[in-house]
């Protein structure tokens, strides 16, 4: 919050509308892609890729992660490492 001036907040607000439009479009895209009935591997890859892009928009702009301090990134970096370990390793066992 300390980084945001009154003028800066207006710029942020303008970006929110753009992000919202992108998210809405991507939602429709992901449904459309699923209707294509791709091979399973490509279906997952496409769905996850679009989801990651949407998530990055929400995290980056709505949660201000794009403007956040290093300490938060360090916390999230390790969290995601452990998240990936939990997600992948049991299925490989």
């Amino acid at each position: 919050m300390s980084a945001l001036s009154h003028g800066g907040i207006r710029r942020h607000v303008r970006s929110y509308i753009g992000v919202f439009a992108a998210l809405a479009v991507l939602t429709l895209v992901t449904v459309a892609v699923s209707n294509l009935r791709l091979a399973f591997f490509f279906a997952i890859a496409a769905a996850l890729l679009i989801a990651v892009v949407k998530a990055s928009l929400v995290a980056g702009f709505f949660m201000h992660l794009a403007f956040e301090r290093v300490i938060i990134f360090v916390l999230l970096f390790f969290t995601f490492l452990f998240f990936l370990a939990l997600l992948i390793l049991p299925a490989l066992s």
């Binding site: 992901t30 449904v31 699923s34 279906a43 997952i44 769905a47 679009i50 989801a51 929400v58």
Partner: peptide
């Protein structure tokens, strides 16, 4: 955002 495609679309 992740739950929707994983459960509904895949």
């Amino acid at each position: 955002i992740f739950l929707f495609p994983v459960l509904y679309l895949l």
